[in-house]
Design a protein around this nucleic acid. Sequence first.
RNA 1: CGGGGUGUAGCGCAGUGGUAGCGCGCAUCGUUCGGGACGAUGAGGUCGUGAGUUCGAAUCUCGCCACCCCGACCA
Length: 406
Amino acid sequence: MLVSNLFAKTRKQDPADEQLVNAKLLTRAGFLYKNMAGVYSYLPLGFLVLQNIRRVIREELGAIGAEEVYLNELQDKATWEASGRWDELKDIMYQFKDSRGKELGLATTHEEVVAKIAKEYINSYKDMPKGIFQIQDKFRNEPRARSGLLRGREFEMKDLYSFHSDNECLDRYYQMVAGAYRKIFTRLGIDAIYTTASGGSFSQEPSHEFQAITENGEDTIYYCVKCQIAKNKEIVGVDADEIEVLCDGCGGKLEPKRSIEVGNIFKLGTKFSKAQNLFFKDKDGKERLVIMASYGIGTGRAMATIAEINSDESGLVWNLETAPYKAYVINLTKEKLDIPENIEQKVLYDDGDISAGEKFADADLLGIPYRIVKSQKTGDKFEIKHRKSGKIELITWQEFAKKINV
RNA sequence: CGGGGUGUAGCGCAGUGGUAGCGCGCAUCGUUCGGGACGAUGAGGUCGUGAGUUCGAAUCUCGCCACCCCGACCA
């Protein structure tokens, strides 16, 4: 890909209307465009990152047998009235009437509709466990959208729903998803801490969150460095600043840390199956309610989190999984540079008529994992610099191809 | 929704009552080219919006809109 062909351009200065690192850098690098508070468009490079995040999630959820579906954003009132959430969520759900006077809403989440659909296909204990997920936008009328992509009014989320005949089946699946989540966050370059949180209004049992520790996080977790586990603020209680919170694992003191919730897994119990009359027949032919769980990862939030935790003074830092391109190629010689066909599609070639310094700055700002320079100094080879470590070596195209697995 | 702040060229900003400015970016030409180069010329603005005060408003007053921050709330 030629840099001259890119739709968006980089900027030298931070946007005036952004405060957080993720929004500043993603805007400066031309990954994002803000349309209104809490509503961002993904520009080509940002969309490539988003698609990479989606791909990692799809691969790992596919590996545990979950199937992808596409539910809908437009929802009817009746489905939501069954669970009582049409009224409960009226402040946060976009609700309106169409031209015929029919009352509709934009989905804030999808438990209602997924339970309704499952009723058609889950009839027996033999039909479970089942897991379906989607990657799709949610709409929430946040009283205060903020922090760039971290809290928007329209945001993309992967939501997985599982269906179970008993708690044993549920627990097994729950642990399996937790394992998949660990793999997902590792591949995305997010160091996510498994955190115990409140089950909220759905269940007495705790839920779990995956939290990425960073100064700009909106949450506070109480974290044990030794055991790598943590408790959410709501579990610890309001007086946590005054009292010592101890680790269940080693008994050591838990440290409060600001963090971003990048994922959550949640046992829903029978709340939604009850609302939608989602029953199954057990081995004895008895009708019982399906037990459900839901599991979320905000894809845009994950992107913002990577920007928050991996960036430096020069700009963004993507890994090979998430990066829009694998390398940023700069040619400082007068000769034409021929990039091998198998590599060409994977790299950005800066063909711009600008100074070398500006090209270096752009390579850093975009956060492309490798920077490849051809100059008089490099002879027959190319200088390759790793964005994250700063490590420099001289390599050939063949060696680079091996590095990026093409 | 309460409190605070901001809105002037594509972007970042200056301009406190008397003809609209600077830097970056953009266009043309030339010289440059290992860390955001330089010279020359040029294009680009309903000063968020509506009303009011005034001989005269980017500037003063009021309403509205948008955006940011703190709080409440929240993936």
